[in-house]
């Protein structure tokens, strides 16, 4: 299967170290002001023109999008499979899972996430390394009360729109669609 090295080996290694450091930083929740208001920590990233977020707890690593083996005959949202810490994971296109959004940059990063499927990990492509954001829980609950979809729209202070993804629901929905 074709393997595309997007950069030379040396810079890939540097990128890997950098990405690991960033993922580590993302996992460390900032403490300042944490006790002021109940918040949900999330990893925010762009998909095309819109901002999306995943609960930070679900994020396991951010790795370069390399060494992915495409799987002919797989559903279109499946980019391929890759090895991660001894496991074989499925890499999926988040944009495709979300229904085919446009994108600004070809994703170069894979987010390894735990969608809450019994410890099984999956990888999602991402245009940029996510940044940590805190979302007031009250706003999340408010959005959830309005919608039970896999992606809920949260309006942050300053009227910024953030699409919060419920990964388990998103993947379950995809499985049902594939089987249906």
């Amino acid at each position: 299967m074709k393997i595309t090295a997007r950069t030379r080996e040396t810079s890939s290694e540097q990128a890997r170290v950098l990405l690991e450091r960033r993922a580590e930083r993302l996992r460390e929740k900032p403490r300042d002001g944490a006790d002021e208001e109940a918040v949900l920590w999330a990893a925010e990233f762009p998909v095309g023109e819109d901002s999306y977020a995943l609960p930070l707890d679900a994020l396991r690593a951010a790795v370069p999008l390399r060494m992915v083996t495409s799987v002919p005959l797989s559903p279109p949202h499946v980019i391929g499979i890759l090895r991660f810490q001894g496991q074989i994971l499925t890499a999926m296109s988040l944009s495709s899972l979300l229904g085919g959004r446009g994108w600004r940059e070809d994703p170069a990063v894979l987010l390894v996430v735990d969608p809450g499927l019994g410890g099984r990990l999956v990888a999602l492509d991402c245009e940029r390394i996510p940044k940590p954001v805190s979302i007031p829980l009250a706003l999340v609950e408010q959005a959830r009360s309005r919608s039970s979809e896999a992606v809920i729209e949260v309006t942050l202070p300053g009227l910024k729109q953030l699409n919060l993804i419920d990964l388990k629901r998103l993947l379950d929905r995809r499985v049902q669609e594939t089987r249906g």
Binding site: T4, L65, V68, S70, P76, H77, V78, I79, G80, A91, S93, S95, S96, G100, W103, D106, P107, D125
Partner: peptide
């Protein structure tokens, strides 16, 4: 780009 190919495939197969 693997992901671009996946996205185009998603759209065109649909």
């Amino acid at each position: 780009s693997l992901t671009a190919r996946a996205l185009h495939r998603t759209a065109l197969e649909a």
